[in-house]
């Protein structure tokens, strides 16, 4: 206590070493998740190629919802990056707003997916069903992980654990979010557009 009292008030607090642990871990996690989703998408495309014209002959997956989902995630990419920008400048209010908007857009995406699943009515015992649900479901799980990651970091920020000196939490969540959104573009193209 006495040693702290000798530090003049005007001295800026020391800068903690930035080891970027969270950023690195998030990058690895995003890479691994991407391989998982792309492998499932590859299995879907391979099976579709093997089956040929009979693929989804009895089902019609609409393009409207998937396209809306794509734009939802595109918007969320901007808002999640806004959160990173804001926390790096200690604009905590904007950071909360941006993170909240991103989470809301993510939840909207889940809602849209649920609606799409009910519209498609693809049975699990069909040839297409397991692969369709596996590819889109894995991406949905990835989105869930991204929402949890962003939510936890928002909570930590509310508790004062993040600031311009320690912005890595939001940045790590953003990396995972961007990769997740990029993967949806591949799913949108491979599953919904090229069906």
């Amino acid at each position: 206590m006495s040693s702290l009292a000798t530090i003049p008030v005007g001295v800026a607090p020391g800068v903690e070493p930035r080891r970027r642990q969270l950023l690195l871990a998030s990058t690895f996690a995003a890479g691994g998740s991407a391989v998982l989703v792309l492998t499932l998408l590859g299995a879907y495309l391979q099976q579709r190629s093997a089956v040929g014209d009979a693929w989804l002959a009895e089902n019609n997956i609409p393009l409207t919802q998937p396209t809306m989902q794509l734009f939802t995630l595109l918007m969320s990419m901007f808002t999640v990056q806004w959160a990173v920008y804001a926390i790096a400048r200690d604009q905590r209010g904007y950071a909360y707003l941006a993170a909240g908007l991103s989470i809301m857009l993510g939840l909207a995406f889940i809602n849209q997916t649920w609606f799409l699943y009910t519209r498609v009515e693809l049975p699990l015992d069909s040839t297409e069903g397991p692969l369709f649900y596996a590819a889109t479901g894995a991406h949905l799980a990835m989105l869930g992980a991204a929402i949890v990651l962003l939510g936890l970091n928002t909570l930590r920020s509310l508790l004062g654990a993040m600031s311009s000196r320690r912005p890595d939490g939001f940045a790590a969540a953003a990396i995972y979010w961007h990769v997740m959104a990029g993967l949806y573009f591949a799913i949108w193209l491979g599953v919904y557009v090229l069906k």
């Binding site: 391989v35 492998t39 299995a43």
Partner: peptide, 21 residues
């Protein structure tokens, strides 16, 4: 480690598919 992180999930995808189908 990098190679493992980028390889094992590809097998994990088939494990998941196997569990479903």
């Amino acid at each position: 480690s990098t190679i493992l992180v980028l390889t094992l999930p590809a097998s994990l995808a088939h494990v998941a598919l196997g569990q479903i189908t």
